[in-house]
Amino acid sequence: MVSKYAIFVIRRLIGSLIAVFAIATFNFFLFRVLPGNPIELLFRSPTLTPQQIRALEEQFGLNKPMLQQFVIYLYNFFTGNYGISFYYRVPVINVLIPRLVNSLILLLPASLAAIAFGIFTGMYAAWKRGTKVDVSILTAAMGLYSLPSFWVGGLLILCSLFYLKLPVSGMFTYGSVYPDVWTYLEDFLKHFILPFITLTLITYGEFTIIIRNCMVDVLTEDYIKLAIAQGTPTLRLLSRNALKNAMLPTISIIAINLGLIVAGAVLTETVFAWPGVGRLIYEAIIHRDYPILQGAFIIITISVVAANFIADMLYGYLDPRVRH
């Protein structure tokens, strides 16, 4: 007999697949209504002949009827072929994947750090709820939440100019010859630290609020009150009982808010010229490189859908009640 958990997984999986399909369709039509002929815009040159334009249109399949383009698109979509970049003239996936890796190198540590810090402050605020400490932590968190990432990035650039003297653009000193691992790492970290701080800061506030609210919910439950009455030590109470219960809603809320983190990443990457997907999107808009835009959009949305799916799985695994 199939277990309840398996059914739950399958149901969620189908839901996610529908979402992916919806995104794919949406994505296709979204990019077909852009104004201007991309070929003529991209190749704006006085020496361009009509034959050249036609040859390029044929190359990118832009001369076919919309419906046919859509069918081709769907087929390619599910076989992992996202087309040829208008600008780079190589398969989109070849450009996208290295950029995605670069983005993750920045995003993962920043989100994890923000969550880690958020757990500490959020938990502390919830424990001290109603006191001055809680109010100040909350206010500070809301302040952080209101910070636009590109502005924070800019401020760090200013700081770097005057005091820190750290590089503010790129990911490495390209072309360097590194005598050993440590100079290599040092070079990377110098480029990494400012965007990392920016992303951590802007997500930290939000996570603190989320975790605080989830904790408050848990701390007002009867069993916690009972535990307090029984004289369970504070630390053990918080970490053993409360945190574990609060983690569940926290995980799902964070998964839902992944889109916001991605948005922060786009802006941060633009400010620091970090060669990730965000900067790629920004450049693709300038180049009108539809295939790249489509690919990047798909990769991002699918990542978010996947993250939500994983969060759901985790939730279902840890809390059997939601499987129904």
Partner: peptide, 12 residues
């Protein structure tokens, strides 16, 4: 601007 910053920082 980013390219000029890289020059300033010694990256290029």
């Amino acid at each position: 601007s980013s390219a000029a910053n890289a020059l300033k920082a010694g990256d290029v």
